[in-house]
Nucleic acid binder design. Structure first.
Length: 586
RNA sequence: CGGGGCGUGGCGCAGCCUGGAAGCGCGCCUGCUUUGGGAGCAGGAAGUCGGAGGUUCAAAUCCUCUCGCCCCGACCA
């Protein structure tokens, strides 16, 4: 950001004297907060909880939120998007049309429903696909009107069963969502790619540590989708990424290559081995004197009304999302011990593909296939088969990718890379929605030939609250927040000490005015408090540069400047300080 | 929605088991002294003990119901 841009951002809020500021700081951690970001935001007075999952954004946080919003606006505008604002209050009918009202829909179950005094049913919208599509179908009728690209920054509502972690999973939250409407798939591809690039710019400008990952599209989706995940070690999503190339994916979707080993040159005779109580592949492999990769995990799942056995190599775990997609089922859960006993004839832990009840469909991960003389459960308590071979000892099952990609697996895209795992917070996602909404809501246009066509739609969202929480999670130390420069509520925290001394107060007031004249965003701590309290609050607030005026600085005709993320403060001249400040803000 | 926990001045907590004058630390107000990492002394204000019902001579404490908040799980931006 250059200096001119920064001063435009100063419009985000007026100057502020801390004596006027609302938002007291807390010395102790509030009991309800678990994560660092939640604790610090409460302690710094950035948020106030009003109800479960409902927060007031206090003045300092609002400035940060506005800055993030401004960065997003700039990138969206630069990508040719127009900003609009759609209603939060929406009629039920639109949602019935899109099919997202029902409880069994992933979004339907968390809609806030409202009834007005005339008896109409409305909702507090959790999303805006319906409304934007409704608007576009009324506005757009010809290929000549296309493409259209819109965005808004608006409050969303979700009747979460369990709000948690402060701004991370609230019931009311701020979101940027954008929609593109193109005449065909190829143009949609272009729009999608443009948002992909814009999102990278946004994350970089905010100063976020993040990964863009390939994400799960759900059973119906053959459409592409990426998630932007902020790296943070709190419970949420797990992603896998390559340490060598650009490959990154949500673990749900993550692919992996496994190391393959030399196989026996000839097939041996299958035999059943008695190995009592050997549950778990490690002790089993040791007992059988086999490498773990020669063992096989066979798990039974209840897939809607069917039972399916899934085989993966012993050193892997089953990825239930992949299985679910493959089977195109709605519910997938591990089969109960009772069902397992019925269908395998054995206790849990001894299932295998050989001699299973006919009702059970067997599917297997690719990597189970080309092994010679492997192990699997014998469907008999305490027994395992060894020297098993696919096709010879049991019919070839359907093969697919059913394993969970994990740390140290080989990268599916490049030769040298290994996968790493990281935990993160989903802060944005971009998706090709295709004609899903345009068809349901009858949103089309006439092409050159005068023929009616559905619009191709893209949806792109950023959860601003969550993004902010992620930034704090990534930028803090023991004593408080350490905001990245471009989204800090203020650039400078001016601290006046010894303000009871006329000379010092005058000096501080002068400096405050001078910084304002320079259009520098400055928070002036003009309160008559002890140094410890002021510095403590400054550390908590996390404004990047702390400038102190005191008896001491006045005497030496200097200023004391300290960066929030450094330990050392320096006494320097006015001129030097101003130069540092200006350079810093560029 | 299943399982668990907690509601006592603004904040953090003790008291509850075993019923018998509502306490502590921080914050807040007044005054004096202090003044570079959350000061000292003196004085002071502030709580229907989440709510309703019940048991009892007597309930923060025991019982029933209810509301709220938090955690784990399922779900999710």
């Amino acid at each position: 950001m250059n200096w001119a841009q920064s001063s435009r951002l100063a419009d985000i809020g007026g100057p502020m004297r801390q004596s006027n500021h609302l938002g007291k700081t807390l010395r102790e951690d509030p009991r309800e907060a678990q994560t660092a970001a939640h604790k610090l935001m409460l302690r710094a007075g950035y948020i106030k909880q009003i109800a479960a999952g409902v927060y007031a954004y206090m003045p300092l946080l609002l400035r940060a939120l506005n800055k993030i919003s401004q960065i997003i606006r700039k990138e969206m505008n630069a990508s040719g998007y127009e900003e609009l604002l759609m209603p939060v209050l929406q009629p039920k009918n639109l949602w019935l049309d899109s099919g997202r009202w029902d409880d069994d829909n992933e979004i339907g179950s968390s809609i806030f429903v409202i009834r007005d005094r005339r008896g109409s049913t409305l909702c507090l919208a959790p999303a805006h696909e319906e409304v934007i599509t409704d608007i576009i179908r009324k506005e757009v009728s010809s290929y000549k009107h296309l493409p259209k690209k819109l965005y808004q920054i608006q409050t969303k509502f979700r009747d979460e069963t369990r709000p948690r972690l402060g701004l991370m999973q609230a019931r009311e939250y701020m979101m940027k969502d954008a929609f593109s409407f193109d005449d065909d798939e190829a143009s949609l591809d272009g729009s999608y790619q443009a948002m992909h690039d814009a999102y990278h710019n946004i994350c970089r400008r905010i100063g976020l540590e993040y990964r863009c990952v390939e994400a799960h599209t759900g059973t119906s989706g053959n459409n592409r989708r990426h998630e932007f995940v902020a790296i943070a070690d709190i419970e949420e999503d797990t992603i896998v990424y390559c340490d060598n190339c650009e490959y990154a994916a949500n673990q749900e979707m993550g692919e992996a290559r496994l190391e393959v080993f030399p196989q026996d040159s000839e097939e041996k005779t299958m035999e059943a081995i008695y190995g009592p109580g050997l549950i778990g592949v490690e002790p089993l492999a040791e007992f059988l004197n086999l490498p773990v990769w020669k063992t096989t995990k066979t798990l039974l799942f209840q897939a809607d009304d069917k039972v399916v056995a899934v085989m993966v190599r012993g050193d892997c775990d089953v990825n239930e999302f992949k299985v679910k997609d493959f089977l195109e089922c709605n519910e997938l859960t591990l089969a109960s011990p009772k069902v397992i006993k019925e269908l395998t004839g054995a206790e849990v832990g001894y299932a295998g593909p050989i001699g299973l009840s006919r009702e059970v469909t067997v599917i297997a991960d690719h990597y189970t296939r080309d092994r010679v003389n492997f192990e699997c459960g014998a469907n008999r308590t305490d027994y395992h088969y060894i020297n098993v071979n696919c096709g010879r000892d049991f019919p070839l099952p359907n093969f697919g990718d059913f394993k969970l990609a994990k740390e140290d697996h080989l990268c599916p895209r490049c030769d040298q890379g290994k996968l790493k795992e990281a935990r993160g917070i989903k802060v944005g996602h971009i998706a090709k929605l295709g004609t899903k909404y345009s068809e349901k809501l009858n949103c089309g246009y006439l092409d050159r030939a005068g023929k009616s066509q559905p619009l191709y739609m893209g949806g792109y969202s950023i959860d601003i609250n969550r993004l902010t929480a992620a930034v704090v999670e990534q930028n803090h130390d023991e004593s408080g927040i350490t905001w990245p420069t471009h989204i800090a509520p203020f650039q400078i925290h001016l601290i006046g000490l010894n303000l009871e001394t006329e000379e010092v107060r005058a000096e501080a007031e002068n400096l405050y005015q001078r910084l304002l004249d320079e259009e520098i965003e400055v928070l002036f701590d003009d309160r008559d408090l002890r140094a410890g309290e002021k510095f403590g609050d400054a550390d908590l607030f996390g404004i990047p540069i702390r400038l102190t005026v005191s008896k001491r600085t006045c005497k030496e005709q200097k200023l004391e400047l300290k960066f929030r993320n450094k330990n050392q403060s320096n006494f320097i001249t006015y001129g030097a300080a101003l130069k540092i400040i200006k350079d810093f803000c560029v």
